[in-house]
């Protein structure tokens, strides 16, 4: 099988979607001639013309609001936010209109669209270029929130996002853009709403999504030396969320660590941990732990490695899963007078 990067697979997904459905239009900042700052739209304008793939004025609320109107007229907009943090000007449009139009109008108007957001860090980017913003969107009913971690998923989930009847925030882990894998497109993987076991294991479940999936897989590999056989579940679609697959895995292993790159407080990982303990309480031998980024603004490039969840941090968490039925000593004293 040929090898391909995630960036190329995303590009192929856009091209194939445009070929299959002439309602699909792709626009944003620098997506035309340049092909996007990450080249995800490379060649689309040359191939499909500047009515199907075009640059807009520099205004993110404008881009998303314009997509609302285009979707109302029957087109299928796919817009690119140049970076995670630069989608914030569009937040009002996304939350108040994109997410709600179907519900406000009892289904009379819907605005299927894809908002592509290159997100998260690990690429040495300076401030405002590395945010993990998925929780903002996942907290908003009416949006689907999807994040691929493999090349095949990048292609398949993006195709499905463009076909979906609901708006999809499509979060692309920047640090995985140029990682290659064997693939033969057009790949079709599991549909929206299904998490996937990336690596089977018996002793504990690592739940991860997007940029944290490779970290979890690496940790599982390293854990073998310590005698742990870890299962890794890739969430893939944060909304709709697959409780069933994740709960089934944790019921098998009895232990769970959630790994996310985003800061932890009030994050997606917190939601996952809560859902797992609600569903698997009697199967759990230890509290569900989280490994996440620190609760700080995304750090400067020279410090980002301290912030990002590392293999070691994941292994430390696994070590604290009460293998000897010993409660984590830190929690025996917490809250008691010092």
């Amino acid at each position: 099988m040929p090898t391909m990067t995630m960036a190329k697979a995303l590009n192929a997904a856009l091209a194939d979607a445009m070929l299959d459905d002439e309602r699909v239009v792709v626009f944003g900042e620098d997506v035309g001639q340049l092909g996007g700052v990450f080249r995800i739209t490379d060649g689309l304008q040359a191939r499909f013309g500047d009515k199907r793939c075009f640059d807009t004025p520099l205004a993110e609320a404008g881009i998303v609001g314009f997509a609302v109107g285009l979707a109302m007229s029957g087109l299928r907009p796919v817009v690119e936010m140049q970076f995670d943090a630069f989608a914030y000007p569009a937040f009002e449009q996304i939350v108040s209109h994109v997410a709600k139009l179907r519900n406000r109008t009892r289904g009379a108007l819907s605005v299927p669209m894809v908002i592509r957001v290159p997100y998260a860090g690990g690429i040495g980017g300076v401030e405002h270029h590395c945010d993990s913003s998925e929780a903002y969107y996942a907290h908003t009913p009416g949006l689907k929130v999807v994040t691929p971690a493999t090349v095949d998923d990048a292609y398949s989930l993006l195709r499905e996002a463009i076909e979906d009847l609901d708006p999809v925030v499509f979060m692309e882990p920047k640090k995985l853009y140029f990682a290659g894998a064997e693939t033969s497109l057009p790949a079709r993987t599991e549909p929206f709403g299904r998490a996937v076991v990336r690596r089977p294991g018996r002793d504990a479940t690592l739940v991860a999504y997007g940029p944290a999936v490779p970290v979890a897989l690496e940790a599982a590999e390293a854990a073998r030396e310590e005698g742990w056989d870890l299962e890794v579940v890739d969430v893939r679609t944060i909304v709709p969320f697959d409780d069933a697959t994740i709960a089934a895995s944790v019921r098998r292993t009895g232990r769970c660590v959630v790994v996310q790159e985003a800061q932890g407080f009030a994050g997606v990982g917190a939601e996952i941990a809560a859902r797992v303990q609600e569903r698997c309480f009697h199967a759990l031998h230890a509290p569900v732990l989280r490994v996440s980024g620190l609760d700080i603004p995304y750090p400067a490039p020279m410090l980002e490695h301290t912030h990002l969840p590392s293999v070691d941090r994941v292994l430390d968490a696994v070590a604290r899963l009460q293998w000897e039925d010993q409660p984590d000593p830190r929690w025996l004293t917490e809250g008691s007078a010092a």
């Binding site: 609001g65 609302v68 109107g69 285009l70 907009p77």
Partner: peptide, 13 residues
């Protein structure tokens, strides 16, 4: 916010 929707809708039409 409706100002941008109208631009998109009219252009789409």
């Amino acid at each position: 916010t409706q100002c941008v929707h109208a631009a998109g809708l009219a252009y789409g039409e």
